[in-house]
């Protein structure tokens, strides 16, 4: 029997699933926005602006969800400062520990960029409280570039560390997703988060009032198509990596979560949007909207399946074996 089946569930459930989803979108949105600002066009700013406007609310919802999940919420700061010695609390080998610092750092980047994005694109404010923030993001030349690069990397780290957090455990599914010496969970969550972020920005940017150039949206869907392709490959590899583990779990567990993963995530959440993005007129003018919504649903279901399948494995095992 795999060693992971001798362990206890941590009861990380819906709060964590929602955090993984929202936090991933926040990190991915910042990454896309910073990428557009770094290598894109000046005309992309109306889209990149949306990215920053999504990033801060995303982390502002996600962070508190993490605190809500604690048994002792008022002690959340114990993860940042050692409660007995008041030295900084940091373990580079513990994903929850370095994740705490990623969330905090990302919060700072997202805060600055959000305030800068409140200045309408094209405007060059002469005075007002937002001017310094606008200057940090756009007006300091190479320093602004550095800000965007570091922010983008932190955003990707936020999107990917959540998968690492699950894999650095002894729990079934999470710790089993290894292929050729690589654990695929961080990679899978990262691709899924960036793709969901692109879908979110597409839905927001498509509204008439947003003033986003058609070209920007087109690039966004093409980018999302590529990322979905990457996610598809990783997901297939992930399923293959778990194959040896399938022999020791109950058929009911496998059938239930397997069906949700293949129909909900692989087909509806990845394959269908992949086609719809590539052929935007397939279902009339709203194909892109449908594709983006499906990407979001698929991204949420992926996290649901990964987290909850591992959490529910014991109870179903017991039922299946009559013990």
């Amino acid at each position: 029997m795999p060693r992971e089946l001798f362990t206890s569930p941590a009861h990380w459930t819906w709060l964590i699933v929602v955090y993984f989803f929202v936090g991933g979108i926040a990190g991915g949105s910042f990454f896309i926005a910073a990428m557009l600002d770094l290598v894109g066009n000046r005309a992309d700013r109306s889209l990149s602006r949306l990215g920053y406007l999504v990033a801060l609310p995303g982390i502002a919802i996600g962070g508190p969800l993490l605190i809500l999940d604690l048994g002792r919420k008022e002690r959340f700061w114990h993860m940042l400062v050692q409660s007995e010695t008041f030295r900084p609390m940091f373990k580079w080998w513990s994903p929850i520990s370095f994740g705490t610092w990623i969330v905090s750092a990302f919060g700072a980047f997202a805060f600055v960029a959000f305030l800068a994005a409140l200045v309408r694109s094209g405007d060059r404010p002469q005075r007002g409280p937002l001017v310094p923030f606008h200057k940090i993001v756009y007006g300091l030349g190479p320093l602004s570039k550095l800000f965007l690069i570091l922010g983008a990397l932190t955003g990707l780290a936020l999107a990917g560390y959540t998968g690492m957090l699950l894999s650095v455990t002894n729990r079934p599914v999470w710790a089993n997703m290894n292929l050729f010496g690589i654990n695929l969970l961080g990679l899978l969550f990262l691709a899924s988060a960036v793709s969901a972020a692109a879908a979110t920005l597409y839905l927001l940017g498509r509204r008439r009032g947003a003033g986003v150039e058609h070209e920007s949206l087109h690039a966004l869907t093409r980018f999302d198509d590529w990322v979905l392709g990457l996610e598809l490959l990783v997901l297939i590899a992930a399923i293959v990596s778990l194959a040896s583990f399938f022999g020791s779990v109950s058929a009911a567990w496998l059938a239930g979560w397997g069906a949700l993963l293949i129909i909900g995530v692989l087909v509806l959440g990845i394959l269908v949007p992949l086609v719809l993005y590539a052929r935007p007129r397939m279902l009339g003018g709203n194909s892109g909207v449908l594709a983006a919504i499906l990407v979001l649903v698929g991204s949420f279901l992926l996290r649901t399946v990964v987290v909850m399948s591992s959490e529910t494995i014991e109870s179903l095992e017991r039922v299946a074996h009559g013990g």
Binding site: I32, W93, G160, G163, M164, I182, N183, G186, R222, F223
Partner: peptide, 26 residues
């Protein structure tokens, strides 16, 4: 922690690939 490096490398590969895709597309 046996999964720390395997998972970190996986995430790193993901970050590089997604970064390249962003670079190419945008």
């Amino acid at each position: 922690s046996r999964n720390l490096a395997p998972s970190g490398i996986g995430s790193g590969i993901g970050a590089v690939l997604v970064g390249l895709l962003g670079l190419l597309n945008f």
